[in-house]
C-alpha cells in the first residue's frame, strides 16, 4: 500500500509529508540554537566590566577576524542562492544546470569549513600569558624552539604541562597593544610584535584561546562547532543528492525535486543561523 502525500501535496494543507517533517525538525533546531544564543547573551551581559585581558574575566573584544568572518558570510549567502537555483532548475526540467549549481553549493560549503578551521587554528595557537609581577600579554609561544600547532592537540601548552615536561623557559612573541573599538592607535604606539624569553617560574597563567581558558571561548567554540557540524551534515546530504542520489530524478522527478526543496530548506536554516551568529559573535 502506498503512503499518501509522499510527494503530492495534501489537498487541505497544500503540503507534502516531507515538508511538514522538515519544518517540525527545524522548529526543534530553533530551540537548540535559541538556547545557545540566550546562553551567549546572558554570559556576556553578566561578565565583569573592563578590558580583557587586563581584567581576567571581562568579555574579550576584537579577538575574531572580522574580514575572514565577513568573507565566510558571503560564501554562505552564495551557497543559499545556488541551492535555490538548483531547485528552480529542477522545476524547469534542467537537470544539467541543477548539477552545476549543486557543485557550486558544495564548493561553498567546504570552503566555509576550510576557512573556519583556519580560524580555529589561529585561536588554538594563540596564548594568554599572565606573569606573577602582574604583566599580561597575548601572543604566540615557542617551547624548545617549536610552535604549538592545531592538529597536534597534545601541543597545546599550559603551566601544568610545562611543569611536567620540566621546561625552564619559553619564547613568547607578544601581540602589539590594540586600540579600543573606534579608537585610533596612539601617536608613536608600537605595532611591532615583541619577542621575549620568559622563565616558567615567573608565569602565573598560560593557556591557549581554547574552551577551558575563558567563558567567551567556551560558548564561541560550542556554537560555531555545532553550526559547523550542521554545515557538514547539510553538505553530505546535498552531495548525495547531487551525485549518487541523482538517479532518482529519472524514476520520479517530482519527488526528487521535493527532496531538493527539503534539503534546501535545511541549508537555508543553517545559513540563517550564521546570519544571526556572525554579528553577535564577531561585531558586537
Amino acid at each position: 500500500m502506498e503512503i499518501p502525500y509522499t510527494y503530492k501535496p495534501r489537498p487541505d494543507t497544500g503540503l507534502y509529508n516531507a515538508k511538514v517533517g522538515i519544518w517540525l525538525f527545524l522548529a526543534s533546531e530553533i530551540m537548540l540554537f535559541g538556547a545557545l544564543f540566550s546562553s551567549y547573551i546572558l554570559l556576556r551581559v553578566t561578565s565583569p566590566a573592563g578590558e580583557w585581558p587586563m581584567v581576567e574575566k571581562a568579555w574579550p573584544h576584537g579577538l575574531l577576524n572580522i574580514p575572514i568572518g565577513t568573507f565566510n558570510t558571503a560564501v554562505l549567502i552564495t551557497s543559499s542562492v545556488t541551492v535555490v537555483l538548483a531547485w528552480a532548475a529542477l522545476k524547469m526540467n534542467q537537470f544539467g544546470k541543477f548539477r552545476i549549481y549543486m557543485v557550486i553549493t558544495l564548493l561553498c560549503a567546504f570552503g566555509f569549513l576550510g576557512i573556519k578551521s583556519f580560524e580555529y587554528n589561529e585561536k588554538f595557537t594563540h596564548y594568554e600569558l599572565r606573569l606573577k609581577n602582574g604583566q599580561v600579554h597575548t601572543g604566540h609561544i615557542e617551547v624548545n624552539g617549536k610552535h604549538a600547532g592545531f592538529w597536534d592537540f597534545g601541543s597545546i601548552y599550559n603551566l601544568e604541562r610545562l611543569g611536567k615536561e620540566q621546561v625552564k623557559e619559553i619564547s613568547f612573541t607578544a601581540d602589539p597593544a590594540k586600540p579600543k573599538p573606534g579608537e585610533k592607535h596612539a601617536e608613536g604606539a608600537s605595532h611591532e610584535h615583541k619577542k621575549m624569553t620568559v622563565k616558567v617560574e615567573e608565569i602565573s597563567k598560560l593557556d591557549a584561546f581554547i574552551l577551558r581558558n575563558h567563558t567567551f571561548f567556551a560558548i564561541y567554540f560550542v556554537v560555531t562547532a555545532l553550526h559547523g557540524l550542521h554545515v557538514l551534515g547539510g553538505a553530505l546530504v546535498l552531495g548525495y543528492f547531487a551525485f549518487p542520489g541523482a538517479k532518482f530524478w529519472k524514476k520520479n522527478p517530482e519527488q526528487f525535486t521535493n527532496r531538493i526543496e527539503v534539503a534546501g530548506l535545511f541549508w537555508h536554516f543553517v545559513d540563517l543561523v550564521w546570519i544571526f551568529l556572525f554579528p553577535v559573535v564577531y561585531l558586537l
Binding site: H268, L272, F276, P279
Partner: peptide, 27 residues
C-alpha cells in the same frame, strides 16, 4: 516553500549588510 524561505533569508542578509554598513561607518 523554499522560495518563501529564500525571500526571508535574503531579507535577513540585507539587514545584516545594513547593520555592517552602519557599524563600519560609525567607526
Amino acid at each position: 516553500s523554499l522560495k518563501a524561505f529564500h525571500v526571508v533569508f535574503i531579507a535577513a542578509s540585507v539587514s545584516l549588510a545594513a547593520v555592517m554598513a552602519a557599524w563600519a561607518l560609525g567607526n
